[in-house]
Simulated scan of single mutants.
Amino acid sequence: MSQIAVGIADFAVGAGDLTLITIGLGSCVAIALHDAECCIGGLAHILLPHPAHSAGPVPPGKVPSSAVPAMVARMRAMGSTGELRARLVGGASMFAPLLPSGAVGLGARNVQACRLACAAHEIPVTAEAVGGEVGRSVYFDVRTGRIQVRTVLSADVVL
């Protein structure tokens, strides 16, 4: 089985016997899209909730409003014809004690923006491992759709 590592503010799409991996999600959010019928999937490592929050160039994988349509387009070009489903991982509040009282952290804003981007493309979010105060890593088996979420201080979670 081959593997593709997805870096921060990037995405990848593939089919069949492939594992898409992203490591070190803190406040970032991984969006995994899957077409179970065609065994095609995509994984994005979202850095920011909106392009206006970026000082520099905004590659498609950096924000959900561009990552979701870019992944969908690439998946459809690869032959995806089935219904797409999304799963979200990450969005932790890594420095919660430093936030002013009542402030919404970057992780929570990233999660909300990812949900909205999926909804805008009529892609249901079927599972989430979001929030909290710990980082996560994602291992997405495109053939089966299985997502293994690893954290340092707790047992793995399967979505």
Rank of each mutant, 00 (worst) to 15 (best):
I4P: 07
I4R: 10
A5E: 13
V6W: 01
G7K: 06
I8V: 15
D10W: 04
A15S: 14
T19R: 08
L20P: 09
L20Q: 07
I21Q: 10
T22Q: 06
I23W: 00
G24E: 07
C28A: 13
L33V: 12
A36L: 10
I40D: 00
I40C: 04
I40G: 01
G41N: 01
G41D: 06
A44K: 02
I46Y: 03
L48V: 12
P51I: 14
H53Y: 14
G56A: 11
G61E: 03
A70F: 07
V72N: 02
V72T: 10
A73V: 11
R74M: 15
R76A: 08
A77L: 14
M78P: 03
G79I: 05
G82C: 05
G82L: 07
G82N: 02
R85I: 02
R87H: 03
L88D: 00
L88R: 02
G90K: 04
G91Y: 00
S93F: 02
M94L: 13
F95W: 15
A96K: 09
L98S: 07
L99G: 00
P100D: 07
H121V: 12
E122T: 13
T126Y: 02
A127E: 10
V130P: 03
G131D: 03
E133L: 06
R136N: 01
Y139V: 09
Y139M: 11
D141T: 10
T144I: 04
G145M: 00
I147M: 04
T151G: 14
V157N: 05
